[in-house]
Design a binder for these strands. Structure first.
Lengths: 251, 251
DNA sequence: CGGTCGGTTGAAGCGCATCAATCCAAGTGG
DNA sequence: CCACTTGGATTGATGCGCTTCAACCGACCG
């Protein structure tokens, strides 16, 4: 949690900007806001609630949940520290946001957020870039849901989690699952049983090794990557130029 | 779109604005650009191509295609007249864009588009709003792909197409499918056979009636809506206030 | 301890995919 | 104008992957 602060100088008329004469970022917009905690399972807001605030995740993990009329549950995404939440356009939230873990976040009035971003030439491109990244990962998820097998889906998720925690540990990639099997299933469009079976299968084949129920060592990163079926993988430098434009397919 | 303006003040240095002293909109950015035509099936750009331009669809329909290494095909979305295309953040396009129909569009250099939007206080919120809508429909599609049955998927698509063409004809909703069965299948995460079977089943039950292979009359809009499994339907005024917190979706 | 909750494992069934044949409309060449 | 072709759509038969239902396990907790 790098919330450099110190503070003293009198706030300008746009008080949000008080802090960031140094390096304005989407993050710093929130740095003056009080930290609020939500315990595991708690909802930050519900689908249909008036969208009054924008949130920044400081610590913990959130899930974005949608529920169909008959109870089918879908998790459209997870949010990690540094992510921003609640920037939908309409009057109301289109989804429910719940704490997977114990979560700490800061909130900012939506219009204040908007204005602040809109008025800052530094922030605007950051914001657009962030939206585009969200869009890209949404597309990626559509690919997964539309055409990937159960095993590919699970491997893709593990790989994503591995990539996320990469940077910290280099040698033996150990990944920690923040979420339950049910969350994984609802994110991957599967059932808990299928997720469980797939994980044991991967374990039996030596691709991964469970440290605990919520932590795995990736024994064969390359295998995991190829099982994820993304034609890139742990390293996508390998194919770079070699890839032609269209995929070949025999069959 | 409430773009109150009027304005007269001399245009800035950015030439793109030459035309739109009246009411600047994302649309008008392109109005000076030449019209270019692409025939059915032709690619506008490929996944991996350098992202040099932004496009506006003037006429026809585009499909956004991604292909997995082994040939599995996914259509993550369709683009209709008025839609904008190619605003990804990275250096390269993340997907292929192909003409479903004969298509007419206008292009604009990416950096020029960016600058124009970034410099215009009227355009910025429009652009963000557009991105958010895209995001919302992507989420909607994830719900469909993750948890809906084949029949629900097909009905959802038909309903979306019906809503799109609504406004023109009021009494008997006749919808025209611009795309082939294969495109439908790859958009819905199904096979052509399943799509075909579902359509004949809906026909046999009198929910829809095919005018031709690419046009249907919706005989029972309410039934179609409920089969789409979205807890709202063709008319969501019916449940309007009755709806609890859940439900309600934009698109 | 008994109880509960999340996860695993097993057995049976179903929905959709797969394989394959046929159909239909539009286009082509004789 | 009519055989022939061609590509997409339909229809049928079969099989598989995942879901469903159900039992069991293991950890945590009162």
């Amino acid at each position: 949690m790098i919330v450099a602060n110190g503070v003293s100088q009198a706030p300008s008329q746009v008080s949000v900007f008080a802090l960031d004469r140094s390096k304005p970022s989407l993050q710093s917009l929130f740095s003056r806001q009080p930290l609020e905690a939500h315990e595991s399972g708690e909802a930050i807001f519900w689908e249909g609630d008036p969208a009054t605030h924008v949130f920044k995740v400081v610590e913990g993990v959130l899930r974005i949940v949608r529920i169909l009329a008959d109870g089918r549950r879908i998790i459209t995404g997870f949010l990690y520290p540094g992510d921003i939440l609640g920037v939908s356009q309409g009057e109301r939230h289109l989804y429910t946001a719940e704490a997977v873990n114990e979560v700490k976040l800061r909130r900012l009035g939506r219009s204040r957020f908007r204005e602040a971003v809109d008025e800052s030439p530094q922030l605007r491109p950051q914001f657009v870039a962030w939206l585009c990244e969200e869009m890209a990962s949404a597309h990626q998820q559509m690919v997964l849901l539309a055409r990937k097998s159960a095993e590919e889906r699970v491997c893709s998720l593990l790989l994503t989690l591995a990539r996320r925690s990469k940077g910290s540990h280099l040698p033996k990639p150990v990944i920690a699952l923040p979420m339950s099997r049910l969350d994984m299933a609802d994110y991957l469009g599967l059932t808990i049983e299928t997720v469980s079976r797939t994980i044991t299968s991967l374990t039996n084949r030596g691709v991964i090794a469970p440290s605990s129920r919520y932590a795995f060592t990736i024994c064969q990163p390359a295998a995991l990557a190829s099982l994820a079926g993304e034609s890139d993988g742990d390293d996508n430098r390998a194919n770079g130029a070699a890839t032609t434009r269209q995929a070949v397919w025999p069959q």
